[in-house]
Amino acid sequence: MRRARLALSLAAALATSVTAIPTPYNYEQAPLAAVESPGFVFGHPGQRVNVSLYVMSRCPDARMCESVFEDVLKHEGILDQVDLKLEFLGDIDRHAAYGVDCMHGDVECAGDAHQLCLAAHTPLEQFYAALSCMNYGNFPGAIGTIALTRRCAETSGIDWWASGVGKCVEGKRAAMVGRYTQRLAALTGEGYEPRPKEWDTEDEDAPLEHLGKEARLRLADSVRHTKKVGVTKSCTIEIASTLKHDKTRRCVVDGGVWKGCDDGHTAADFVRVISKEWKALNPT
């Protein structure tokens, strides 16, 4: 009976933290710097080549360029040559469920935020494995649901709670309950469900899920950055350059068509350009 009451109390506590739709939030007064997180830039700026993918998580064009970069990152040595980050398109709207208006709805905003959390708290190789998992199959499918994000994270070897991804996505209270149930399961040798199974749906039409404070801040910060640099198309690829006069190599996928890609748009082309820029940054 004590164990049953404990399980019920845990479920009740978690329900209040993960099922409520968030209230409007003043993002302008809560800069990302206030979030205790390592940030979502990989590697060591100044020695590696900065590569930015400007995307929307449920956009077919984003899936197309992310698929190409999956092959880029598989090339020997490239992981050590790039600082790769994702930035997202949208409009700041304090009245929206997550503080941002996204082209493909609130569930896309959640997907954008989930991917930012993964990027912030995991190594590039693991992050991209989880991203590829989310893009696999009946795209866009359940992108934006916690169930899919967690399944892809754990499939990629990411510990949902220990990594910090779960706390970023679901919030501090959910993380406390989740970590507690993990420890309890380890002590008792019995499995515990930190969330009732009926909540773990990969249905894109399911009610909106709670989004943690860090995730909301990262999403708003990314959208503001994208606006600031003037990117309007998903997917836009930017590679920082020390060899070109305008300091940037840009390539766009728009409606399934590659545009403005002076250096080519295959994985081999991107590998060649990144390696060339890396050698310019690191002369022997």
Rank of each mutant, 00 (worst) to 15 (best):
R3Q: 12
R3H: 09
R3F: 07
L10M: 13
A11E: 08
A15V: 04
I21C: 15
P22W: 03
N26D: 14
N26K: 08
P31W: 07
L32H: 13
L32C: 07
P38L: 03
G46V: 04
V55Y: 02
M56T: 13
S57K: 01
R58D: 05
D61I: 04
C65K: 14
L73I: 02
L73H: 04
Q81K: 01
E87Q: 14
F88I: 11
F88E: 09
L89H: 10
D91V: 14
I92P: 05
D93N: 08
R94N: 11
A96M: 01
Y98F: 02
Y98N: 00
G99T: 00
D101V: 05
M103F: 02
G105K: 00
D106E: 06
L116S: 02
A119I: 09
T122G: 07
E125Y: 13
A129R: 10
A129L: 13
L131I: 13
F139S: 03
G141Y: 05
I143V: 02
I146V: 15
L148I: 10
R150F: 08
R151S: 14
C152H: 15
C152F: 13
E154G: 12
I158T: 12
S163Q: 08
V165R: 02
G166E: 03
E170M: 13
M176N: 15
L187M: 10
E193W: 11
E198S: 12
W199Q: 04
D200H: 08
A206I: 02
L208M: 04
E214A: 03
L219K: 03
R224H: 05
E238S: 14
H245P: 15
D246P: 04
T248I: 07
T248L: 06
R249I: 09
R250S: 09
R250D: 05
R250L: 07
C251W: 06
C251H: 11
W258N: 06
D263P: 10
D263S: 09
G264L: 01
G264F: 08
H265A: 05
F270P: 00
V271I: 04
R272D: 01
S275T: 05
S275H: 05
E277N: 00
A280E: 08
